[in-house]
Nucleic acid binder design. Structure first.
Lengths: 217, 217
DNA sequence: CCTACCGATCGGTAGG
DNA sequence: CCTACCGATCGGTAGG
């Protein structure tokens, strides 16, 4: 009897190894292909719109045949939803990573804005722009689910904006200010381009200068 | 020989009456039907997107049969362009009507913002939201033409913003401030709703309070 | 994931 | 503007 491998019956199917199961090659490929589809879908939904981008376009972009995306996603609508869901989860993770808990309100707002621009304009980031553009293409259930993630994302802004309003650095109705500020930032997907003169830091500076007034006691 | 109608040959076709030609019934109907199609198209393009709204939807919305819109517009793309063109011309007219030439810079900005909100949210105003959403569905030639109208529209804002920057009431890079301000205003198509608590006057107040700092000498 | 395919729908047109 | 229609395309599926 082997001292190294007692009682191993080599005719039985391999038992599950302990701990996190190592993915087989097939499983790993599957995850990659799914991710490839998400990226290609985001790019095409953004460039052409959900209605005009076809599942055939998306399949071709990752070298699949026309029916194959439906092996990974039940429908075109589910694919759209998956793009937005993935985009929001990544945005939430980036925000949590960037936020320093003890920053002054103005410094905290700057971090939030800078991170938000990163989420909108970082390399290969089409997911959130698709969410901003294609909201109406979701069904009611999907909208509710994405809304929940958006609420979490916006939750980090509320105390910062409230503190700035209290110190007079933010003026006017706070709820409307929040909507106007998000608009100013989100609209940048229409005009910002990494090759323009202004960097994301420049745009952050401009936004802070525009929104933040001098403190008044 | 008749003293009243000398030399009139009644066998010839009726001569053109002088002045602005009175439209025949047919011509008047044609204009109305074309206008009906534009309105229905704007509403549907806005609600569903250009790709998802079908020419059959649009035809049905005005009580036409499926082929009939193509009697008025050569293609779906031309119809989209016509919606945006009409929207921009109406917006330019409203802006010209509203602007008082000798207003103080801050008062002038308030007028521009209030009129802009009116253009975006006035009753039955789907034309400009369609332009904001469906830019990517235009071809290059159409984009260039609409861009020209947008340039005219924005031309009224530049001197006002420059004056506010000179007096310190607007802070930060002026070109970026302009883009951020337009974003804040335009994004309201995503959230403003006439039935909400805040009126367009309220939102205008909030925008002015947010953007305009105290004058400094 | 491919092969082979289907039913539905869509923009657009000819002719009146 | 209607009638009647076409060719193309599209999302999606069965079976392997």
């Amino acid at each position: 009897m082997s001292a190294l491998h007692p009682f191993v019956d080599h005719t039985a199917p391999a038992r599950r190894p302990r701990g996190r199961p190592r993915k087989t090659l097939d499983e790993r490929d599957e995850g990659n292909r799914r991710q490839d589809l998400l990226k290609a879908a985001a790019r095409l939904f953004r460039r052409k719109g959900f209605g005009a981008a076809t599942t055939r376009d998306i399949a071709a972009a990752v070298g699949m045949h026309s029916g194959s995306p439906f092996y990974h996603f039940k429908s075109k609508g589910v694919l759209l939803y998956a793009v937005m869901d993935e985009g929001m989860r990544a945005a939430l993770a980036r925000q949590a990573r960037a936020l320093e808990p003890d920053a002054e309100p103005a410094a905290a707002l700057r971090q939030l804005i800078r991170t938000h621009f990163d989420t909108l304009h970082g390399p290969g980031r089409d997911f959130i722009p698709v969410m901003l553009y294609e909201w109406r293409s979701l069904n009611a259930r999907q909208r509710a689910a994405i809304s929940r993630l958006q609420r979490d994302y916006e939750a980090a802004w509320a105390p910062v904006l409230d503190a700035l309003a209290a110190s007079g650095q933010l003026r006017g109705d706070v709820a409307l200010a929040r909507l106007l500020i998000f608009g100013a930032l989100n609209w940048s997907v229409q005009w910002f381009n990494p090759k323009m003169r202004a960097s994301l830091d420049d745009v952050t500076d401009a936004a802070m200068a525009l929104f933040i007034h001098e403190e008044r006691m």
